[in-house]
Design a protein around this nucleic acid. Structure first.
Lengths: 155, 155
DNA sequence: TTTTGTGCAAAGCGTTTGCACCATA
DNA sequence: TATGGTGCAAACGCTTTGCACAAAA
């Protein structure tokens, strides 16, 4: 019953966080939160809206955006910009990680390495900046595309 | 005569790179290249266009974009996305560095630390990814805004 | 009952595209 | 002179805004 328990915890957390800020718990917010925590991946606003449509038809894109913005402010998710200008929302940001974008297939993959090191924070501090978060985005080739590349090179 | 020599070198490089690819050296490209190398900072397409307007009135935004795209492909500059969705072109990318965005004033500042470490590259390789570049973007407060913040907190 | 949130439609903004004209090599 | 580049205007896609209605507390 691990999953059910997690979900209950998660739902309770949302209620609590919203209530503490004097904000309201709406079905839309609950559902978006549910999808986000279930996904635990970087998603675009549009992807979320598509998933929502299946469960909650008629939900509007502005609501999705405003909810994502709210969750970002609350620190529940993390908003980041990709090299192609797209905005992605990284769910499961309780565990910060770096990202890799394959310049061939465009796929974004999570990498389990810390995006910001203590060394980075120290260096920034020497320049007078206080850091509280950051994104590390790597560019190159993913395993599949690299394999394809070397194959076509051999031919 | 250091500066003049640098500029000559730089101009020669552009000619060479373009010629090697069978591309043409136009006044627009030369000028954009000049401004970019003189700036040695992260700039938006619009900022470049504004600077250009003063020297070369009538230059069009599409031309700026296509030239920046070309230079990015040639590896002369580096294109990156900021958290607010804006695209910045980092000139002088011969020396890669991290960036810091102040979440209060929105300013972007260069930080002289490597964005991608050998450790990052190794970790990515273990997951099957070959890295050839990357962006490290830190968020927090710059010196000035931090000072303001602590001042208003004391009051 | 009061205030906050939602949905709809329309506007906004940076970027890209299509096409005729121009200029480099 | 032949190909590649520029400028103009219009289209595009994602995101934001304004406002009336609905619903949580």
């Amino acid at each position: 019953m691990q999953a059910a328990q997690d979900e209950r915890t998660v739902q309770t957390n949302l209620d609590k966080v919203l209530h503490d800020k004097g904000l309201r718990t709406t079905p839309q917010r609950k559902l978006i939160y549910r999808i986000i925590t279930a996904t635990a991946q970087h998603v675009s606003a549009q992807q979320i809206q598509q998933e929502l449509e299946e469960v909650f038809p008629g939900i509007s894109l502005p609501t999705v955006y405003s909810t994502l913005e709210l969750f970002t402010q609350l620190g529940v998710i993390h908003k980041m910009a990709i090299n192609n200008g797209e905005m992605l929302y990284d769910t499961g940001w309780s565990h910060p990680h770096a990202h890799m974008r394959c310049k061939k297939c465009g796929r974004i993959i999570d990498l389990d390495i810390p995006p910001v090191t203590q060394q980075d924070i120290r260096s920034a501090a020497e320049a007078g900046f206080s850091v509280d978060s950051g994104d590390l985005l790597l560019y190159g080739l993913c395993k599949e595309c690299a394999a394809q590349e070397s194959k076509s090179a051999t031919v």
